[in-house]
Design a binder for these strands. Structure first.
Lengths: 190, 190
DNA sequence: TTCAATATCGAACATCATGTTCGAGTATGG
DNA sequence: CCATACTCGAACATGATGTTCGATATTGAA
């Protein structure tokens, strides 16, 4: 890929994330990004359809980052009940506070929310598929990804009270019993 | 309140919700609503600051509706572990499929999402405050409201597979053990 | 080093949604 | 019945969007 292209895309992504913190995603203008990045208008549109498209490519980076950290740590399956995968997620946010604050703070808008939930859903879907639940996997994954996302957003917006490990433990406490219960062959759910 | 005002506001709200299904909330234009409602442009702006404001007043109606149904049924406290309050919520969606499909279908956009989560949060906050959890109530409420919202959205978007009672039971199964666990005085969480 | 391919620039342009203004007409409810 | 308050519609300023195109600069491969 052409060096200029790489540079343009990187500079635009950086500018976008930096500006979200100041202006908020929704009210942010393509022109604002252009000015900050010092990139020509027409150049922008040769690369991205709109603001959302730019944001999505940025998110792809985050996604890969997180994925690789999870893979690094997941040599061999974790038995359900460990705090590990949750810990990795909260750690990741903790180590990238600046970015997370911008992107899922009150200013972050919904762009991040949806992408992040789908990511969490995918991760949980795999995890639960391996564990095998009595409930439809989809429902359980939807349930937990919503719960996790919501907790993560709260944590970031409260400016990271508690340590990541503590957060992970709390989620674990709220999550694990339900998972375990849904693993046992007990009460019939249609 | 003047009869004309009542009419104007109602007609605008109806038009908005009806159009969400066709166009999607985001791409929907104030002018579209005006045309459908057959209301003058300037009249709109004497009542609402923008599209979001209009939507919020509509949501207030939904909120009151739900609240009253919950109050009707909550004469005396429900012990945590009952499926009732969840049932009411899912029932409400089931009985108003048309509206819910529009408002929290894929087309619904984020307007609904945020308002609904805050509503669920408030409801759960009260509920959990009464029950008393070992974890900070805020966190638990955030966690569960996210889980619930996510499940509700999934259900609506899948076009209401399962009966409302079944959905409520599943959520209960995933929720209750965690709540119960967090009620016991066991492992220390900072 | 050379050069063809390719990226960027910038300025102009059409389009569209937004929110405001104001005077004239019309419904309301006391 | 009538003063009040609401609605109408058309016009207007503003600001963001996405496109176009010729000129200029950079790249990477020969």
């Amino acid at each position: 890929m052409d060096r200029r292209v790489r540079r343009t895309r990187r500079v635009l992504q950086d500018a976008l994330v930096a500006l979200i913190e100041e202006y908020g995603y929704e009210r942010l203008t393509v022109q604002d990004v252009l000015d900050r990045a010092d990139i020509g208008r027409s150049t922008f549109y040769t690369h991205f359809r709109d603001k959302d498209a730019l944001f999505m490519t940025w998110f792809d980076g985050l996604r890969e980052d997180l994925r690789s950290e999870l893979d690094d740590m997941a040599v061999g399956h974790q038995p359900p009940g460990t705090t590990r995968p949750l810990g990795v997620i909260f750690d990741h946010a903790y180590r990238n506070q600046r970015v997370y604050r911008a992107v899922c703070g009150r200013q972050g808008g919904n762009a991040f929310t949806h992408l992040m939930q789908r990511l969490l859903f995918e991760l949980l879907h795999e995890h639960l598929r391996l564990a095998g639940t009595r409930l439809p996997v989809e429902i359980a994954a939807e349930y937990y990804s919503g719960a996790l996302l919501s907790t993560l957003l709260w944590w970031v917006r409260q400016d990271f009270p508690y340590q990541p490990a503590e957060l992970a433990a709390m989620c674990q406490l709220l999550t694990a019993p339900g998972v375990l219960a849904s693993l046992s062959p007990a009460p019939h759910i249609p």
